[in-house]
Computed example of a mutant assay.
Amino acid sequence: MNLKAVKEMITQINEDTGIQIIKGNTKAPTPNPPYGMYNITSPYIKGRGRGAVTLHDHESGPYEKRTEEYKFVISFSIFGENTETAIELAHKVRQWFLFLGEEFIREKDLVVSSVGNIQNRTVFLVDDYEYKFGFDVQFRAVDEQIRQIETIEKVEITNLGG
């Protein structure tokens, strides 16, 4: 999984929407609402088959490349001071995946496979509500592995017929 591309995508969402989005499930203090939080809930969902292995020639020698398509899911929760703010900001971030961020995502060699519905994720904490609404985004990506291979350049065969 390309975690660098995910981090760059989160930075781009912040720049394009003005909504601060932080990584979830950390011990870092959370900012005051409004803000967003993301969690990679499924880092690897196997695709069909075993992947494709191809042979390639290069100046440094021949190599094999294994290519495999897989999916991963990122869950977004948007926190607000009230329900209306949380819904509005969640909608804004969801729209980023459907239109504004389309080219950026493509440049990172990712494809948005599906964008889920916005759901109420509000919880009651001790004496107050934590207003949050969120959705999941499923991506398709390609994993590549390369290994050098050795070849036999020339074979000399002698004494074939005895």
Rank of each mutant, 00 (worst) to 15 (best):
T85N: 14
I40H: 08
L89R: 05
E107A: 14
T17K: 00
T41A: 08
A5R: 06
I19P: 15
V123S: 08
T17H: 03
D57W: 00
E69S: 11
E103N: 06
Y38V: 06
I22P: 01
T85I: 15
M1Q: 10
I22F: 09
T26M: 07
W96V: 01
G18H: 08
G51P: 00
K65C: 08
L98M: 10
V112P: 02
F76A: 00
K71P: 03
E8P: 00
V126E: 15
L110A: 09
K108Q: 11
T85H: 12
P62I: 06
I78E: 02
A28G: 09
R121L: 06
W96D: 01
K132G: 07
G80F: 05
E68F: 10
Y70N: 04
T83V: 08
S113Y: 13
N117R: 15
M1P: 04
F124Q: 09
E64N: 12
V73L: 04
S60Q: 10
T54K: 13
N25W: 11
S114Q: 14
V126D: 15
D127T: 15
T26K: 09
I45Q: 09
N2G: 07
I10M: 15
K4V: 09
S113R: 13
A86W: 02
V73Y: 03
I74N: 03
F124M: 04
K7R: 14
F72V: 04
E59K: 07
N2V: 05
S75K: 04
